[in-house]
Structures are given as C-alpha cells and as structure tokens.
Design a protein around this nucleic acid. Sequence first.
RNA 1: GUGGAUGUAGCUCAACAGUAGAGCACUAGGUUGUGGACCUAGAGGUCGCGGGGGCAGCACCCGUCUUCCACC
Length: 387
Amino acid sequence: MFEFKIIKKDKKTKIRAGVFTTPHGIIKTPMYVPVGTQASVKALTPNDLKEIGVQIFFSNTYHLHLRPGEKLINKFGGLGKFMGWNGPTMTDSGGYQIFSLGDRLEEKNPERTKLIKITNDGVKFWSHLDGSTHFFSPEDSIRIQHDLGADLIVAFDECLSYFLTEKEVEKVLPRIHNWEKRSLDYHKKHSKGKQFLYGVIQGAAFKRLRKISTDYITSLDFDGIAIGGVANAGESKKAIYDVINWVIPDLPEEKPRHLLGVGEVDDIFEIIERGIDTFDCVIPTRLGRTGFIFVSPKEGNLKNRFRIDIQKAKWASSKLPLDQNCNCYVCQNFTRAYVHHLFRTRELLAYRLASYHNVYFVINLSKKIRESILKDKFNVMKKEWLV
RNA sequence: GUGGAUGUAGCUCAACAGUAGAGCACUAGGUUGUGGACCUAGAGGUCGCGGGGGCAGCACCCGUCUUCCACC
C-alpha cells in the first residue's frame, strides 16, 4: 500500500526527488505539506486544495481528540471522508502540544498557565478549551491516530525547547525514545498495514544528543523518519540547518524524511538541499491570515523575507496582483487594493484569498524546485531566489 | 422659553490648580509539528470659543456656542 521511490539523487549534495505512493494517492517529493489542524486548512475547501495542487495536508491529534473526538471522525470513515478530501493525509502525534501548552515556554511567557504534567507513562494535560483533564500515553496517541485514519502518522514524542541545557535534554531523551518505541509496538500490533508511522528524532540543539537520537530511532523499524524540535522557541535558522546537517548522513536512504514545522521561503531551499522529502509548516496560512503575502523575486528577497504586508497604506490603491509572477486564481483575478480593502474591513474573504495565494505559492515553489532537481538545475534556481 | 448635563487624540473616555493620559484605531517590527491570536515600539491634542481673577487653568468665575435630557 505504501511505496517510497527515489527517482533522482544529486551526486554532490543530499538532494533527492521521489514518488511517495499512499493508499489515497501519490506525493511527489520534495513537497510542502500545509497544516489543517482541525480537519480544515483554515479558510480553504478541499476543492481549493485540489486546485492549488496540494497533495497532502497535516492535521492534529490533540485538537481532533478534544473536538470532535476520534470516534466520531472514525464513524464518518476517517479524517479525509469526514471533511470531503479524498487525497492523502497526515496527523501529528500531539507531542508538539506538550511543548506548546507546557511550562517549558515559561522563560518566554511567565504568566502562561501550566496546562500539562509529564510522567514516564505519558502526559496529563488540561484542555485549553474547557479545562477538563486528559491523559495521553504513547499508546493513546497511536490509537487515536488509527481512529483518525490518516495515511501518515507520527510517533508520540516530546518537542524540546531550545532553552533547555544539554544535561536537561540528556535526561529526558530516554523517556522520549521509550515513548516512541511504545508507539511503534502498539502500531505494529494494531495498524493492519493501513498507516505509515514516522519516528521522530529529538535532541534539541546538541549534536551529540541528536546523534544518539538518530542512532536509536533508525535502529527501530519505523516506516519513515521525522526530525522534530527544530522550529519552536526562538532558535536561529542556522540552528535548524545544523540539526539537519548532523542527522541526515546517518539516515537510511530508502525511508522518506519529514521535517516537522519548517517552511519559510529560504528554509525550503536549504532543507531540500540537505535531503528533506516533506515538511509541514503553518507559516503560509498563518501569515496569510494576518495579511502577509508571499512574493517572488525580484520584489521578494531575503531581506523582506519574500513577503509584503498587504494591510499597509501603500497598497490602498495598487492595481498590481498579490504577486506579479503568480498564476493562481487570486493573482489572476484580484488587485492588491481589493485585498487590502478586505483586510482593512475584516471581510472573511480576505483570509481565504490570502491563504489561497500563500499555499499556492509554496506548493508551486516546491514543484518548481522538484523540476529543477530533475533537470540538475537546483543550484541555478536557488541562486535566482536567494540572491 | 426654563432647569440640568455635556464638550480633552480619528473614536470612547481619564487627568488633587503645578505645562494632558489610557483603551481601540493608525504607523513600524515580530510570528516556523496553527494564533482570525498575541507581543514590541512609534506618531497623534491651541483641552469648543471669548474674557476674568490667580505666580500658575483642562480644572475656578462670567459670557457664548454645540450636543443631550427633563419641563413649559
């Protein structure tokens, strides 16, 4: 049911292009995976996603467990059927929420209420919705993900903050590895081969610990390998790329590699160059909702981070499309002045048009990068963009 | 017409007689396994108008205008 086939490999770098076959369709890698936390890529319909060229999206176990519940989604035939999407899907394990709801962010936000308590067996947490208490063990996370029925699922881990010291990370790493082993064992016993499980490499910003985690995760029989904990609490881009550099050489060639939570425009070049196959990221949709619009060279560059703020007064009467080199529905039909107006007036269409364009932009960028890889022109394209 | 209230930043409102502040809005940053959220910073006012006493007025006194309420 699952097959990951590498169709092109670069001799000098770690770059590769592949075809990943899943029960609900194929993913041509490398490819961006948009995030649709609550069984919805915010503001976009499944039909939009098809038009845009989205091949798979990423949803969230924590949120769907709390609302509407995995049992209900299972009754409707799983995540895809529930929301009217017939393509491949992926779910996160809930591990990231342990981080984002937890007290490890205290340095950054001291007033934040502690919503979690971690034990060796799992994590007790208080719902951000109504304060009710819940418990996730690794087995719970995988069971829920089985009920949700996404094609690609993720072992239960704990996303570690970059504020932790090497000693602190070293102390919790065995617990994370234990959770992942238990995730795998439970999955092997109950999955019936319908779902594809990723193990997650952790270790924060420490080369030695990333190495230990890589060795351990690759020693287990996970279907795919994910790299986590690189995009969370204020780490630099260099730190993100360093972690990938440390980890990739020790990964098996034949397993697909997913990078969790990274995907600004320049990152996309850097991570694909380092051997990543798929990557999810909230940036295109989140920035879209707050009025930041992706633009291509030459208007877009490293300095402006390939984005304009459509809410700024300078666009109030601009007849330009959102991006001057984009073929998406929004850019073909609307002006910056109009989208500016929609944001200023808080019309719901603003979020939809901005999300549509931004997701299209990153999907299209991924496709073009893949084509450049197939033609041995990746470096040429990278230079055109990251001048 | 009479009585009472009202007027301060674009908006809603603060400010013991000692040279005006807040929230929202605006401007400029930030956001990487979701935040239609939030965090930083900045700009913006002849205190309705005219007069008076007072070292000193947004504040006290007189007049005038605006808006609102009640009564005739």
